[in-house]
Simulated scan of single mutants.
Amino acid sequence: MNPKYTAFGKKLLQYGLVLFVAITINFLLPRLAPGDPLLYFFDEGTLKELTAAQKQMALDSMGLGGSLFEQYFIYLKGIVSFDFGVSIKYGLPAIDVILERLPWTLVLIGPAMLLSAVIGVAVGAYSAWNRGKSRDVSLLTVMLTFQAVPGFWVGMLFIAIFAVQFGWFPTYGAVSIVQDGTTIGWLKDVALHLVLPIATLSIATVGSNYLLTRSSMLESLGQDYVVMAEAKGVTKPRLIFNHGLRNALLPVYTHFMMNLGTLIGGSVVVETVFSYPGIGRLLYESVVARDFPMMQAVFLMITIGVIGANILADLTYPMIDPRAKSTRRVKGES
């Protein structure tokens, strides 16, 4: 058998095991939460008046009827058939609500991730090249500040200044209630609603990209081949981009791919601050309402996103670093 396919099969088996464990934890976590779930839908007086049959009917509608093993079996059966149950809060199939909210989150985190990565890599490389100088110290101070400041505080500050004080951008939501009815007007309205959330999410994540690029770039610039190229009179831009940054981008790329899966759920704070109708806001609302079907569906989607990003990183990493392909070939031959 081809060693390449054997290694890929082992990798898929590992990811399958991780997915199974994550699915099990996803099933158990909502059920381990304290409190009676029925109290989130009935007050204590009404709950006391309900008969045992009515209580059981309410639990069955939430997927909490029967023993824990029976619930787990129904849960696994629903995953296989893409039936995640009916949302208690919205009264709609959970998958339908998620598919309605998912595009808004993708529109938010896509530009934010790209902007954060480009700025972080560019500024990190520039800072590393000017290591020890005042501009490096200044940039490092600014980026450490961005890294330390909570995202919700940045979002509230942006709302207070740019939305309330100057009135340049909307304060909440993804679209305005009143529009001009044209496609261009709708797109412009959506773009205006995205500016502040994207800026907040970018600032919250740019610090890690900068620090990782700067650290990796400093290590790369200290290598012998870079010193030799500088001694030969290679121009500064070519030395930075062709010799230093090319190798320094490898850990940054890995970090970017990991964030690709986690940011779908990691945008909870930003979407909550701006009342943005994405997956993060949906997760927050589901937890508050103890909407078990919705919580399980969102957690599962985030888990699949993280595992999918890992698989994509494994498949594309040899394209970024040819040495990884050579290492795999040598291991297969041995």
Rank of each mutant, 00 (worst) to 15 (best):
M1N: 10
N2H: 12
K4P: 02
Y5D: 03
Y5K: 13
Y5M: 11
G9P: 04
L13V: 15
T24A: 14
P30V: 11
P30G: 08
A33C: 10
A33E: 03
P37H: 08
L39F: 07
Y40P: 03
F41A: 09
D43M: 09
G45W: 04
T46K: 14
L50S: 10
L50A: 07
Q56R: 07
L59Y: 02
S61R: 14
G63F: 03
G63V: 13
L64T: 12
I74F: 07
I74A: 13
I79P: 06
I79Y: 01
V80L: 14
S87F: 03
I95E: 06
D96V: 14
E100S: 09
L102D: 08
W104S: 12
T105L: 01
I109G: 00
G110E: 10
G110A: 15
P111T: 08
L114I: 15
L114M: 13
V121P: 00
A128E: 03
K133N: 09
R135P: 02
S138T: 15
T141H: 02
A148G: 13
A148V: 14
G151H: 02
L157N: 06
I159S: 08
A160T: 10
I161D: 03
G167W: 14
W168I: 12
T171F: 01
V175P: 02
I177G: 04
K188G: 11
K188I: 08
V190E: 05
A199L: 14
A204L: 01
A204R: 00
V206A: 02
L211A: 06
S220A: 15
L221Y: 01
Y225A: 09
V227R: 13
V227C: 04
E230Q: 14
V234C: 06
V234M: 08
K236H: 05
K236W: 01
F241K: 03
L245K: 01
V252D: 01
H255A: 14
H255W: 13
M257Y: 09
N259H: 03
G261K: 00
L263D: 00
T272M: 01
V273F: 01
F274H: 06
S275V: 13
I279Q: 00
R281F: 13
Y284M: 12
P293L: 07
P293N: 12
A297Y: 08
G308K: 11
I311K: 05
A313D: 05
D314Q: 05
T327L: 15
E333V: 12
